[in-house]
Amino acid sequence: ETGKELVLALYDYQEKSPREVTMKKGDILTLLNSTNKDWWKVEVNDRQGFVPAAYVKKL
């Protein structure tokens, strides 16, 4: 879809709370919100949640 910003997972991340999502290094995720410098909201496999901003980079 146009207008979607994507990020690349630089590291594996295992969710530690229900508000977070698990990702694997190399995953491409849809970026939903990056206003917080530490935690970015992403969508992966129809799930939305937060990942550490340092673990992903914008494509």
Rank of each mutant, 00 (worst) to 15 (best):
E1L: 09
E1N: 14
E1K: 09
E1I: 13
E1D: 14
T2F: 12
T2V: 13
G3H: 14
G3Y: 13
G3A: 14
G3E: 13
K4S: 10
E5M: 13
E5R: 12
E5Y: 12
L6H: 09
V7I: 08
V7K: 01
V7A: 11
V7C: 13
V7N: 01
L8Q: 12
L8E: 11
L8G: 02
L8N: 02
L8D: 01
A9C: 12
A9H: 01
A9W: 02
A9P: 00
L10N: 03
L10H: 03
L10T: 04
L10C: 08
L10A: 04
Y11I: 09
Y11R: 15
Y11G: 05
D12P: 06
D12H: 06
D12F: 04
D12M: 03
D12C: 06
D12K: 03
D12Y: 05
Y13I: 01
Y13F: 08
Q14Y: 15
Q14D: 14
Q14F: 15
Q14K: 12
Q14L: 13
Q14A: 12
E15W: 06
E15V: 06
E15S: 15
E15H: 09
E15F: 06
E15C: 13
E15R: 14
K16C: 11
S17D: 11
S17T: 12
S17W: 06
P18W: 10
P18G: 09
P18F: 08
P18C: 10
P18H: 10
R19P: 05
R19M: 13
R19A: 11
R19G: 15
E20I: 04
E20Q: 11
E20N: 05
E20Y: 06
E20V: 05
E20R: 04
V21P: 01
V21F: 13
V21L: 15
V21Q: 03
V21M: 13
V21H: 04
T22C: 06
T22S: 15
T22M: 04
T22D: 04
M23A: 02
M23C: 06
M23T: 03
M23N: 00
M23S: 00
M23D: 00
M23V: 09
M23K: 01
M23E: 00
K24T: 09
K24H: 10
K24M: 09
K25P: 03
K25T: 07
K25N: 04
K25S: 07
G26I: 01
G26L: 02
G26Q: 02
G26T: 02
G26V: 01
G26P: 00
D27V: 05
D27W: 13
D27C: 07
D27N: 07
D27Q: 15
I28E: 03
L29C: 10
L29K: 00
L29F: 07
L29H: 03
L29Q: 01
L29Y: 10
L29S: 02
T30V: 15
T30W: 14
T30F: 13
T30A: 10
T30E: 10
T30M: 12
T30C: 09
T30I: 15
L31N: 00
L31D: 00
L31C: 07
L31E: 00
L31F: 03
L31R: 01
L32F: 04
L32P: 00
L32R: 04
L32V: 12
N33W: 07
N33Y: 07
N33L: 09
N33M: 08
N33V: 08
N33A: 09
S34K: 07
S34P: 06
S34W: 09
S34M: 09
T35P: 04
T35L: 09
T35Y: 09
T35E: 14
T35S: 15
T35I: 09
T35K: 12
N36G: 10
N36E: 10
N36R: 09
N36Q: 09
N36S: 10
N36A: 08
K37Q: 11
K37C: 11
K37E: 11
K37H: 12
K37P: 13
K37A: 13
K37R: 12
K37D: 11
K37V: 11
D38Y: 15
D38M: 14
D38I: 15
D38Q: 12
D38P: 03
W39R: 03
W39N: 02
W39A: 02
W39P: 00
W40A: 04
W40N: 01
W40D: 00
W40K: 01
W40Y: 07
W40F: 07
K41V: 14
K41H: 11
K41C: 13
K41A: 08
K41I: 14
K41E: 13
V42R: 00
V42A: 01
E43R: 10
E43F: 07
E43A: 11
E43Q: 13
E43T: 07
E43Y: 07
E43D: 06
V44K: 15
V44H: 15
V44T: 15
N45W: 10
N45C: 13
D46N: 14
D46G: 15
D46L: 09
D46T: 10
D46R: 09
D46Q: 11
R47P: 00
R47C: 06
R47W: 04
R47I: 07
R47E: 05
R47Q: 07
Q48S: 12
Q48R: 12
Q48H: 08
Q48A: 11
Q48I: 14
Q48V: 14
G49M: 05
G49P: 00
G49N: 01
G49D: 00
F50L: 09
F50Y: 15
F50C: 12
F50W: 15
F50I: 07
V51T: 02
V51F: 01
P52W: 03
A53K: 06
A53Y: 02
A54N: 13
A54Y: 09
A54I: 10
A54E: 09
A54S: 14
A54W: 09
Y55R: 05
Y55M: 11
Y55H: 06
Y55Q: 05
Y55V: 06
V56K: 01
V56P: 00
V56W: 01
V56I: 08
V56E: 01
V56Q: 00
V56T: 04
V56R: 00
K57G: 08
K57H: 09
K57D: 06
K57W: 10
K57T: 14
K58P: 10
K58R: 13
K58W: 08
K58S: 08
K58A: 08
K58Y: 09
K58M: 11
L59M: 10
L59D: 03
L59A: 05
L59P: 03
L59F: 09
L59T: 06
L59N: 03
L59Q: 05
